[in-house]
């Protein structure tokens, strides 16, 4: 099943008198269960494409379809519902809600989605265990390391069982070991839950985890290649 189709996406930004091209006729198809890395230098359009695919930003022209839904045609409310139920986000700066504990951060999205308290609790404990945070459920973000916070963010992104997870530089603030552990975790989740991952990064170490590597420059896709993933160290994450 096709997970996401972008067709002729264009996006420009105005910076003073200068027009900056964010996306320049970008077309891409990503299958369900894929593990894609978008790479390229700063300003190449990785984040812009990610935001457009996640419905966080609207393209100036072009089409974006997730499953059977044209998200570029959705209004604010349906788009929010789409993100809530079908798309998970992992951000560079973790972006957890500081006043909520790890478990509450994970549960929050489910509560907004209308899930029962019992089910929320069951799922949050399970997913936090899965990302290696058992026993840390009641810690607030300030009492977790960067890697642990990013694991909570990953748990939050996948707990609602979305079809697509978009991650923007998820390892940018992490050290090498923690980055590696996080990427192992993402690959494991991709394989076990059949979740599609699209990761924007300019970290070569992250790129080696991708099944498919798309390189971007000046808002255009300059290469799109399938590659073999690095060996997955299951159980060591």
């Amino acid at each position: 099943m096709t997970s996401i189709v972008c067709k002729d996406l264009c996006k420009t930004f105005q910076q003073g008198d200068e027009t900056i091209i964010g996306l320049d006729n970008v077309s891409i198809t990503i299958e369900r269960g894929d593990f894609v890395c978008l790479s390229g230098p700063s300003g190449s359009g990785k984040t812009t494409l990610l935001n457009a695919m996640g419905g966080l930003d609207t393209p100036d022209s072009g089409e974006i379809t997730i499953g059977d839904v044209r998200i570029d045609e959705l209004g604010k409310g349906p788009l929010a519902d789409m993100r809530l139920h079908n798309i998970g986000f992992v951000f560079q700066a973790y972006n957890l809600i500081p006043v909520l504990t790890a478990r509450e951060n994970v549960e929050f999205v489910m509560q907004v989605g209308g899930m029962s308290a019992a089910e929320r609790s069951k799922r949050s404990f399970k997913i936090l265990k899965e990302v290696g945070l058992e026993g840390m459920e009641d810690r607030r973000p300030a009492h977790l390391s960067g890697g642990q916070q990013q694991r909570v963010a990953v748990a939050r992104a996948i707990v609602s069982q979305p079809t697509l997870v978009l991650a923007d530089e998820p390892t940018a603030n992490l050290d090498t070991v923690t980055s590696s552990q996080l990427m192992d975790l993402l690959v494991e989740l991709n394989q076990h839950h059949n979740i599609t991952f699209v990761i924007a990064t300019h970290d070569i170490r992250v790129m080696k985890y991708a099944k498919r590597l798309i390189k971007m420059e000046d808002g255009k896709i300059i290469s799109d290649e399938a590659q073999s993933q690095s060996p997955i160290p299951l159980g060591e994450g």
Partner: peptide, 16 residues
Amino acid sequence: TREFGIMMALGLKPAR
């Protein structure tokens, strides 16, 4: 503002 932006990205509507 940033926090609200994150919550919106997660799927919360402005009314919420």
